[in-house]
Nucleic acid binder design. Sequence first.
DNA 1: CCTATATTTCGATAAATCTAGAAATATGGG
DNA 2: CCCATATTTCTAGATTTATCGAAATATAGG
Lengths: 102, 102
Amino acid sequence: MDHEEAAASLAELGNSHRLAVFRFLVKAGHRGAAVGEIQQALGIPASTLSHHLSRMAKVGLIRQEKHSRTIICIPEYQHLESLIGFLKEECCVGVSGGLDSK
Amino acid sequence: MDHEEAAASLAELGNSHRLAVFRFLVKAGHRGAAVGEIQQALGIPASTLSHHLSRMAKVGLIRQEKHSRTIICIPEYQHLESLIGFLKEECCVGVSGGLDSK
DNA sequence: CCTATATTTCGATAAATCTAGAAATATGGG
DNA sequence: CCCATATTTCTAGATTTATCGAAATATAGG
């Protein structure tokens, strides 16, 4: 995960609707959820949701699989792991008092 | 850490300049760095940097301490921890294949 | 008080984002 | 072919963000 990729992913998560969607999917597990399910669960208008989902897919936070008429959204756990790893990386190099010293 | 607080913090980290500043501070450790040091290290114009720093302080990602003429910026490690915890929370409730099953 | 240093505030512009209704597209079934 | 369902694309307005020079503020030292 490089700097720009991390910034882009964090920016996507930094929107209330998208964060709610992502957490819903993370909670749902690797089987994911259909766009319509997400819409019903979170009450976001279809066009707005579609916009947010495509943004999230673009940066790799989720992937979308089409099954006949429905589209299943699946969280990319590995991407999240990389992102978290990036944030902790180089934490307190040679210094005490930070994350690694607890 | 609640939903809105997490979204706000993630949004702040989701900007290339701010992410660079935050990582610089995280790397610097609990003693932090002066605004001027950050400016020199990252080459961001003073007024732009000041703007980004106050945003980060506002959401609790960093705190700022004034020592005579200089202002020291210190990363809030605990805030970062909470944020990461929030992202992993409820991960894959009752489902396999996610972060917790590796 | 005057000067140099450190940082913020002001102000203005350009760019990106969010939102959601309406229309369009895709697909499966009868 | 037609209909119902699922989702996206189009469009457009409102809001927020990013940027940074210039001016202002704060402070320490002489």
